[in-house]
C-alpha cells in the first residue's frame, strides 16, 4: 500500500495502491502506521509521491464508502462516518504539522481526498500531467478530509468557490499560477526536482528550519472541525448513497470525468 525509505536525511513515502491510491480504511491504517514509526529526528525532508501510473491519488475509496453505507442500517451511518473521519483528520493533521519539510510530487490524478492529502504538504511540485480537482459536489457532499480549510490557507476565496462550485479540474500549470504549486516540471521529472529541493533544505540549520515551519504553517483547527460537521450532515442525506451506487454500478470507461 505504501513504502518508506530514508537516505541522507531525506525520507520518501511512496503510495503504491492500485488503481490510484484510493483512501479507505487500509490506506488510513497504512498512513497511521507510517506516522507512528517515523523518527522525525532522522530526516529533514519528507517527499510524498505515488508510484502508480494513474496519478497521485484519486481520493476517497468510494467503493468502500458505498459498501459501508449500503450494508449498515441508517442509524449506524453517522458513528461509522465520524469514526473514519476522525482517523483521517488525525492523519492529515499529523502530516501537515510534521516538523520536517514535506514535499509532494504530483502527477496525473490528484482528486478529492488526494488533493486534500497533497494540501498537507509544505511544497508541491507538479508534473505536467497533474490534474487537481474537488469533485465532491457531484456526489452531494463537500471535501471532508480537511481540504477546504487547507485550500483556504493557500489561495483566495474566489479560487475556492471556482474549484468547489464548478467541480472543474485544473492543470499543474494553472495550480502554479494560483500559487498552489511551487514548480511544474516535465513528465517523470518531479522526483528529481523534489530531491534537489530536499538537498537544498538539508543545508539549512535544523533548528532554524523547524522553527521557521512552525512559525509559518498553522493548523486551521476551528475550520477543520466545522468542515467535518458539514461533511457528516451532507453525507447522511440520500444523494450521497445514490451517487455512490451509481458510480459503483457504472460501466462507463470514464467515471472520473463528469
Amino acid at each position: 500500500m505504501i513504502d518508506f525509505s530514508e537516505s541522507d536525511g531525506v525520507g520518501e513515502l511512496v503510495l503504491r495502491a492500485e488503481p490510484c491510491n484510493e483512501i479507505g480504511t487500509a490506506m488510513v491504517a497504512a498512513l497511521e502506521g507510517f506516522l507512528d514509526g517515523l523518527d522525525v529526528d532522522r530526516i529533514h525532508t519528507l517527499i510524498l509521491r505515488s508510484s502508480v501510473r494513474g496519478g497521485f491519488c484519486a481520493g476517497a475509496d468510494l467503493r468502500e464508502l458505498q459498501a459501508g453505507l449500503a450494508s449498515r442500517p441508517a442509524a449506524e451511518h453517522e458513528p461509522a462516518l465520524r469514526a473514519f473521519l476522525d482517523r483521517i483528520h488525525a492523519v492529515m493533521d499529523r502530516l501537515d504539522m510534521l516538523p520536517v519539510t514535506t514535499v509532494g510530487v504530483i502527477h496525473g490524478v490528484c482528486f478529492g481526498g488526494g488533493f486534500e492529502l497533497a494540501l498537507t504538504c509544505d511544497v508541491l511540485i507538479a508534473e505536467k500531467s497533474a490534474r487537481f480537482c474537488f469533485p465532491e459536489l457531484r456526489l452531494g457532499i463537500i471535501p471532508g478530509f480537511g481540504g477546504i480549510p487547507r485550500l483556504r490557507r493557500e489561495v483566495g476565496d474566489a479560487v475556492i468557490r471556482d474549484l468547489l462550485l464548478s467541480g472543474r479540474s485544473i492543470s499543474g500549470k494553472r495550480a502554479q499560477a494560483l500559487g498552489l504549486c511551487s514548480q511544474v516540471v516535465g513528465r517523470g521529472e518531479g522526483l528529481e526536482a523534489a530531491r534537489a529541493l530536499a538537498s537544498q533544505s538539508g543545508k539549512f540549520d535544523d533548528y532554524a528550519r523547524r522553527a521557521c515551519k512552525k512559525f509559518i504553517k498553522k493548523l486551521p483547527a476551528e475550520e477543520l472541525a466545522q468542515e467535518k460537521e458539514l461533511f457528516i450532515e451532507l453525507a447522511l442525506r440520500p444523494p450521497l448513497l445514490a451517487a455512490l451506487t451509481k458510480f459503483v454500478e457504472s460501466t462507463d470507461l470514464r467515471p472520473y470525468l463528469p
Binding site: V109, R131, L257
Partner: peptide, 20 residues
C-alpha cells in the same frame, strides 16, 4: 486516468483551459 492527463497536456500545448 490517462484521459485526465491528456487534458492537462492539451491545455499546455494549446494554451487554453478546458473545463471538465
Amino acid at each position: 486516468f490517462q484521459a485526465v492527463e491528456l487534458i492537462s497536456e492539451l491545455e499546455d500545448e494549446f494554451d487554453v483551459e478546458l473545463p471538465d
